[in-house]
Design a protein around this nucleic acid. Structure first.
Lengths: 250, 250
DNA sequence: CGGGAAGTTGAAGAGCGTCAAAAGTAGTGG
DNA sequence: CCACTACTTTTGACGCTCTTCAACTTCCCG
């Protein structure tokens, strides 16, 4: 299967076709191996698919907002989602970008601690929290997988703290591009050129910078020949090593 | 039991006395309710105590370093630990301060993703990774507790990203003091004045600031009457509401 | 006491933010 | 098909917050 591009708002992807055949629609899910369903068997997949709803979300539409009762959990199957927190005066911090296979909606508390909205047209599986928790009790493998995901997210979050607290604008952009590239590979897409479906403003809110600084830094990297800005929000990395050196502050 | 101060390097706490009596030493653990052992019964506590080692760590000594094989997990019983990541040129980002009841050592990978060293004299329980994982298989409650802890850490990390990416120095310090105060309460200590056992340099590395800016900002808050700097690394909060307003960017 | 680390304060400068304007791009409807 | 609008991106000029570098003070612990 040719790697589709689920990341740009220009080339909108078709929803992943779901076979309503023998076992369960989840059997045909192209991102299953990436997410919490990876460890499940046919019978278990059927139980999962019994409690989920497929949703299509338009660019800009919210999946949920910070402070709302946390009633659902989600799995992204196609598209791109941004999650963020706000300060009283509207300052925004993106805490993550989510792509096919990514999982979201965890909450300690009974309410979401952050907001989630679609960047491009996006498809998700939605699980009622209570029902998923009930299933988890019977599927210890899935619980372990969820824990592994949370652990991984924690490591990613710590890396992001290093970036936000200690890296320069140039280092932040370099790290960001390498992150996108690495995640594209894990989804079976091309590592280069990398798709950058979000706006400069979104990138700024993710890296703790302004739109203008993001733009200037891209220009600077382009003029140094380190990246080439392609149409359709794609960026070609000219020498991954150079970017890695910049990203690590070498 | 009088709330001891486990947080300053000046007044070093005694290790929590452990009763080597009937059931297990863990029965007498004063931080048990705060950590992964909270959900365990007597029999299970005994199994836990069979695989753990008590360690005393001197100020500045490492528990483990970034990149080392992740062989152990830890529970802080007394003292204070800092965890951090480094860039190639020595820039440092604290990703957390850990106090009694806190748990550390999770790793995706086979190696630690961050370093951990003691701030004050500290006591920890150390669990061999493999043995703890084996126990987890039999104690689903503890696994759930671990997942809850990881989820909570994730929420804290997102809050910290908001701080690092979008808050001013003044807002960062205000948030930091409130965070320390809130955590002291959860450990059964006084919320005010709050103990600040770490150096200005450590605080700076946690908040993405320099030592000098931390110092200047404390001075500024003191001159505004918002805090009073007491001896022994204690800070009195004069009006929590004012600090909260500052912290939220109001 | 005395020496070394930690903390404070000052002056100068850099990096990034703010404000403003122009250029590029996408979507809409006549 | 093209004009019209709204949004995004880029670029410039300027300013401010925080950093850097340095000196001095305070606080410990031997």
């Amino acid at each position: 299967m040719a790697p589709l591009d689920f990341m740009t708002s220009r080339s909108v992807p078709e929803p992943i076709p779901r076979i309503t055949a023998p076992s369960s629609p989840c059997s045909a899910c192209s991102v299953r191996q990436l997410t919490i369903c990876a460890a499940l068997e046919e019978r278990e997949l059927a139980e999962m698919s019994a409690i989920l709803t497929h949703l299509e979300v338009e660019p800009g539409d919210p999946l949920f907002l910070e402070g709302e009762p946390a009633q659902h959990l989600f799995n992204v199957t196609a598209g791109a989602i941004k999650i963020f927190k706000l300060l009283a005066d509207g300052r925004r911090q993106m805490t993550g970008f989510l792509f096919p296979g990514d999982f979201l909606g965890l909450a300690n508390d009974e309410t979401y601690a952050y907001s989630a909205t679609a960047i491009t047209r996006t498809w998700v599986c939605r699980f009622p929290r209570g029902k998923l928790e009930a299933l988890l009790k019977h599927f210890p493998k899935m619980e372990q997988r969820l824990f592994a995901i949370a652990s991984h997210e924690l490591a990613v979050a710590q890396e992001q703290m290093l970036l936000l607290g200690r890296k320069t604008a140039r280092e932040k952009i370099a790290s960001f591009l390498l992150m996108l590239s690495g995640r594209a590979v894990r989804r079976g897409q091309l590592d280069n050129p990398v798709s950058v479906p979000m706006t400069r403003a979104d990138i700024g809110d993710y890296l703790g910078l302004t739109t203008e600084t993001v733009s200037r830094t891209f220009t600077q990297l382009r003029k140094s020949g380190i990246v080439t800005l392609l149409p359709d929000g794609k960026v070609q990395l000219n020498g991954r090593e150079r970017l890695e050196e910049i990203a690590e502050g070498a």
